[in-house]
Amino acid sequence: MIGTPRQILIRKILLWIALILGACFAGLPVLWMVSSSFKSNLEIFAYPPALVDYSFSFDAYLAVLGDPGQLRFFFNSYLVAIMVTICTVVTSILAGYSFSRYDFRFKKVLNLIIIGVQSVPPITLMIPYFGLIVWLGIYNSYAALVLTYMVFTLSYAIIMMTGYFNTLPRDLDEAVMIDGGGSFVTLWRILVPISLPGIVAVGVYTFMLAWNEFLFALTLTRTNDMRTVPIGIHLLMGQHSFEWNQMLALSVLGSLPVLVLFLLFQRYFIAGMSAGSVKG
């Protein structure tokens, strides 16, 4: 930047003001949620409000963690998200390999369909899913959630995986093929190990999508022992209407897995987020 030291100073001050205002917009609501989860239920809407007050305690967290019903939500969410992640990663590796390394007749059309699936509204699929899942005999089961979640995780995963394989030189797999390895061997022995960063990106992003899903979990499960965390929060809101601190504690605990993954794999997350829209 060009300018006198004075101008630069002024610019810096303005920049910092903007930065801090932005941080308040993004961060204060979250800070308030976390601080409220440590208050007693009576103090949450106290007047005047305070960020931390005398009622500070871990009671709400202990209540959530001591309730087997609510722990079950976490167990279900982890189980479903992990299964969705594994299935999506394997399926998308196979599909990405096909799109990246082969030319075939319906390649363009199939590619368009897979991109297009992203725009199918979940609410449109919900009505037939209900009938289909009941007909398959998997209503109110983990299988119902894993299968339906994959419809929405797969298309990103395939787009990302194809893009990643495209960045790897073809000479690599050709060398193995000449040595007598089949295409399947090439994929698992050569491409998969060196694509690990791409696979982690797909996995992390898939886990997050599955962890957050709401509509299918709401309609395709019935009993509380099959509910996931987002639905658990919804139930808590209805049941004993205003156990605010417990709802907030459950929310904070329910956000931790994604937050931790996010902090650990920031770069991958960002790659995942932009894979659907931005290429290059």
Partner: peptide, 25 residues
Amino acid sequence: LLPYGYLSPTLLLLAALTVIPIGTV
């Protein structure tokens, strides 16, 4: 047929859970 083989899990899932349901709706 090989590329279709690799795509078969994807195609099966999308047919069963996207194409047919949209037809049903």
